[in-house]
Computed example of a mutant assay.
Amino acid sequence: MKKQLIIILSLGIFLILILFLVFRNSFFNETPTIKYSKLNKQKTIVQGEWISNLDSLSGISIRENKIAFFKNMEFTSDDIYEYQIIDSIHQSNGRDIKVGEFLMMKDFKDTICYQIMNRNDSSFTLKTDKNKSEIFKHKAFKK
Rank of each mutant, 00 (worst) to 15 (best):
T33P: 00
D55R: 04
H138C: 02
E82V: 08
R63W: 07
K127Q: 14
P32N: 12
I62K: 03
D55L: 05
N65L: 07
I60R: 02
K143N: 14
W50A: 00
R24H: 13
I45L: 13
Q91F: 09
S122R: 11
K43H: 10
K106S: 14
K106P: 02
F20H: 07
D121P: 05
I135Y: 01
S52A: 11
L21D: 08
E101T: 13
M104A: 11
N29T: 01
I116K: 00
M117V: 15
I7K: 11
K38S: 09
G59S: 09
C113P: 04
V99E: 14
D87F: 00
K137I: 14
N72C: 05
I6S: 10
Q91S: 15
D79Q: 08
N40P: 00
V46T: 13
I45G: 02
S58I: 08
R95Y: 15
S92C: 12
S58A: 14
N120Y: 03
S88K: 12
N120F: 08
K66H: 10
V46R: 08
E64R: 13
F27Q: 02
A68D: 01
F70N: 09
L15H: 09
E49N: 15
D55M: 06
L11P: 06
G100V: 04
M117L: 15
K139Y: 05
I7M: 07
G94V: 07
N65A: 07
D110C: 07
L19R: 05
Y114V: 06
N93Y: 06
G12R: 00
I6G: 01
S61T: 06
S77M: 11
G94E: 09
T111Q: 11
L57A: 09
I60H: 03
G59A: 04
I89R: 03
S56K: 15
F20Q: 05
Q115I: 07
F102K: 02
F108G: 07
G59K: 04
K127Y: 02
T33R: 09
G94M: 05
F108D: 13
E134D: 10
Y81R: 00
I112H: 00
K130W: 12
D79F: 09
N93L: 12
K98Y: 08
L57C: 02
I60M: 04
K35E: 12
M117N: 11
I8Q: 07
N118V: 11
K35C: 03
K109A: 15
L9N: 11
F75V: 12
M117D: 12
D129C: 03
Q47Y: 06
Y81E: 03
F124Y: 10
V99W: 04
L9H: 00
R119Q: 10
S52L: 09
I51A: 01
I16F: 08
N118Q: 09
G59Y: 02
I135G: 01
I80Y: 02
S92Y: 06
F20I: 06
P32D: 09
V22C: 06
I8R: 01
R119A: 09
